[in-house]
Amino acid sequence: AEIMKKTDFDKVASEYTKIGTISTTGEMSPLDAREDLIKKADEKGADVVVLTSGQTENKIHGTADIYKKK
C-alpha cells in the first residue's frame, strides 16, 4: 500500500472504496510508525493509506483510513 496525502487522495477518491481504519501506537520513530501503518494496510489488502491523525509526545499515535481500488 502507498501513503497518500489527503489533498492528493481527494483528486482520485472516486477510484477507491474505503475498507477500514488502522492505527499505530508506541515508542517508535515517525518512520517506524509509517512503516507499521503500511504493513497493517498491506495485511488488509489495501492499495492506499490516507493519514487522518498523528500525534507525538512521549509516544507516537497515528490513524489512517485504508482504501482498495474499485
Rank of each mutant, 00 (worst) to 15 (best):
I3V: 09
K11L: 10
T25D: 14
D10R: 06
E2K: 15
G26V: 13
S14M: 09
T52H: 13
F9G: 00
K70H: 07
T7V: 14
K39R: 14
D8R: 03
K39W: 04
A33L: 10
V12G: 01
I3K: 01
G45I: 02
M28D: 06
K39I: 06
P30I: 12
M4K: 02
A41R: 00
T17G: 03
A1L: 09
G62H: 15
D32G: 08
E43G: 06
K6V: 06
S23F: 10
T24M: 09
K70F: 05
S53N: 11
N58C: 12
V48L: 09
L31Q: 15
T7Q: 11
K59C: 14
L31R: 14
D10C: 13
G26Y: 09
P30L: 13
Y67E: 04
K18S: 05
V49I: 15
M28N: 07
S29K: 08
G20A: 04
E27R: 12
V12H: 04
A13G: 05
K59R: 10
I60Y: 12
I22V: 08
M4H: 02
L51Y: 06
T52E: 08
L31P: 09
G20C: 07
T52A: 09
D65H: 04
K44D: 03
L51S: 02
G26H: 13
T56E: 12
F9D: 00
E57H: 09
V50E: 02
I38W: 03
L31A: 15
S14T: 11
D42I: 15
K68F: 05
K70G: 06
T17H: 10
A64E: 03
D8I: 04
M28A: 07
E57F: 07
V12I: 11
G26P: 09
S29M: 08
F9Q: 00
T52V: 11
K44Y: 13
V12E: 03
I22R: 00
G54N: 12
M28C: 10
T24A: 07
K11E: 07
E27A: 13
E15N: 11
M4V: 05
G45N: 07
K68H: 05
K6G: 06
K39N: 07
K18G: 03
T7N: 09
K40T: 04
E27G: 13
H61E: 12
T25C: 15
D8T: 04
V12R: 05
D10W: 08
A1M: 06
K70I: 12
Q55W: 15
Y16C: 03
S53F: 14
E2C: 15
D65G: 03
Y16W: 02
R34G: 05
K44A: 15
I22Q: 01
G54V: 11
A64M: 06
P30T: 12
A1F: 02
Y16T: 02
M4W: 08
D32I: 07
E35M: 14
G62K: 12
E27F: 15
S53T: 10
Q55N: 12
D36W: 14
A33F: 10
I60V: 12
S53D: 13
A41H: 00
A46C: 03
D10S: 06
E27C: 15
E43W: 08
E2N: 10
L31T: 10
E2A: 13
T63F: 09
V50G: 03
G20T: 02
K68R: 09
G20H: 02
K39L: 06
S14K: 12
E35A: 15
I3D: 00
I3A: 03
T17F: 14
K18Y: 15
K11I: 08
T56V: 11
I19H: 01
T52W: 10
V50I: 08
T21N: 06
I22E: 02
T56P: 11
L51T: 03
T21C: 11
D10G: 05
K44E: 07
T52N: 11
P30A: 13
E35Y: 09
G45W: 04
M4T: 01
E15C: 15
D10A: 08
E15K: 10
M28W: 05
V48Y: 02
T24N: 05
A33Y: 08
E27K: 13
T56W: 13
D36L: 07
T24G: 04
K68E: 06
L51K: 03
T24P: 04
K18H: 15
V12Q: 03
A46W: 00
K68G: 03
M28R: 06
V48R: 01
D36Y: 11
D65S: 03
D47E: 05
F9A: 01
K40I: 11
I38L: 14
K40P: 00
A13D: 03
L37P: 00
D65C: 10
L37K: 00
S29N: 09
D36V: 08
R34S: 07
D10P: 00
D47M: 04
K18I: 06
S29D: 13
I38S: 03
A13F: 06
D42S: 15
D47G: 01
S29Y: 09
E2Y: 11
Y67S: 04
T52I: 11
K5N: 14
T24R: 04
T56S: 11
K70D: 05
